[in-house]
């Protein structure tokens, strides 16, 4: 993925994370005692769905905003650094 595409994906992930951060404060279900599907309290159902949404957000982050360069950076300096540090690893 090109740098620009990854940078745009990063922005979208950040916007998604910020949206989820705000949506956590679900004051609209604060005093709602109704049961979704007949057994799940509305506020709990909302936060269960929130957990799934968080997983989807991170799935998008992993797919579209993955820092692929970091692996090469880690591997590139590994042998040099260990030599300099007296073989410690």
């Amino acid at each position: 993925m090109s740098g620009t595409k990854r940078s745009n994906a990063w922005r979208l992930v950040w916007i998604g994370a910020a949206a989820l951060f705000i949506l956590h404060q679900d004051f609209w279900f604060w005093n709602d005692r109704s049961l979704v599907l007949g057994f799940l309290p509305a506020g709990l159902a909302y936060h269960a769905a929130y957990s799934i949404a968080a997983a989807l957000l991170w799935l998008a982050a992993v797919k579209f905003a993955w820092p692929s360069h970091i692996e090469q950076w880690a591997d590139a300096g590994a042998s040099d650094s260990r030599t300099k540090r007296g073989g410690r690893s």
């Binding site: 679900d26 709990l44 936060h47 929130y50 957990s51 968080a54 997983a55 991170w58 982050a61």
Partner: peptide, 20 residues
């Protein structure tokens, strides 16, 4: 039920953010 939002759903979002 608020305990879930307090501890579990916050953790779902923020723990993964920390790992990433």
């Amino acid at each position: 039920i608020g305990v879930y939002g307090l501890m579990a759903s916050w953790s779902g979002l923020i723990h993964s953010a920390c790992f990433f």
